[in-house]
């Protein structure tokens, strides 16, 4: 059976992420840290909680160093919600703490408007859209599909050099919902809590990663 490793980032949605992978016959193992760049299975960074506390957890035992090595070697890494956000340079949630900086970009507070009512968090099902459909590959079929979001921070105006990107509109902003760039996949929403489409998405990621 194919296998993935889920890195425990603290308060986490680990149980439901495991359940969703098991539904598509992927075996899961939960690991507490990484102490070598030789990881024997694709990695998942799940995540609930605050940017700073997740980064502190990744840096205090050198896990972030080995994650970096694994990233450079082309090891497949999937980040979910906060697990996606830590792949970037930093976040307004904890502006003094650096992210993993695998990718360019800063995570912003999505509640910018002071003139009109705008919710501080995006909670609930949102519909995915794309700027263009060419190059989306397996992900094209998720345009128009609804997934469950629960976040107050996100990436707007991304500079990701990939065609595999999907967005949502929140507070009149185009917010990055998911991307696949080289060996990295980041998902702002919760596929493990989005019913059947969520499980299908995980299955597509597994296929794109050629597991």
């Amino acid at each position: 059976m194919k296998k993935i490793c889920i890195l425990n980032l603290g308060y986490s949605n680990i149980k439901s992420v495991r359940g969703a992978f098991e539904e598509i016959d992927i075996e899961t193992a939960v690991i507490e840290k990484i102490d070598s760049a030789e990881i024997n299975a694709p990695l998942v960074l799940p995540g609930v909680g605050a940017f700073g506390s997740a980064m502190n957890r990744l840096t205090f035992d050198n896990t972030s160093y080995y994650l970096h090595e694994a990233f450079k070697k082309g090891h497949p890494i999937l980040g979910i919600c906060l697990g996606m956000q830590v792949m970037f340079e930093g976040s307004e949630e904890d502006s003094k703490i650096d992210g993993l900086s695998f990718l360019p970009g800063h995570i912003r507070n999505l509640n910018q408007s002071i003139e009109k009512f705008s919710p501080p968090s995006n909670i609930g099902y949102s519909r995915l859209n794309a700027c263009k459909t060419e190059g989306l590959g397996q992900y094209e079929k998720f345009i128009g599909e609804h997934f469950y979001f629960m976040h107050s921070f996100g990436l707007v105006d991304d500079e990701l050099a990939t065609d595999q990107k999907l967005y949502i509109n929140f507070n009149d902003q185009e917010v990055l919902a998911m991307f696949h760039h080289q060996n990295l996949v980041g998902i702002q929403f919760h596929p493990e809590r989005s019913g059947k489409p969520g499980v299908e998405l995980l299955s597509s990621i597994v296929k794109e990663f050629n597991l």
């Binding site: 969703a20 469950y148 919760h190 493990e192 989005s194 019913g195």
Partner: peptide, 28 residues
Amino acid sequence: KDFRYPICAGGGIQSVSDATDLIKAGAD
């Protein structure tokens, strides 16, 4: 583990640790 939908859970939460008990159990 087998539930694919978001859950908001409550009742009697008096502290951060009561809340994290529910989150650890699987509440979103």
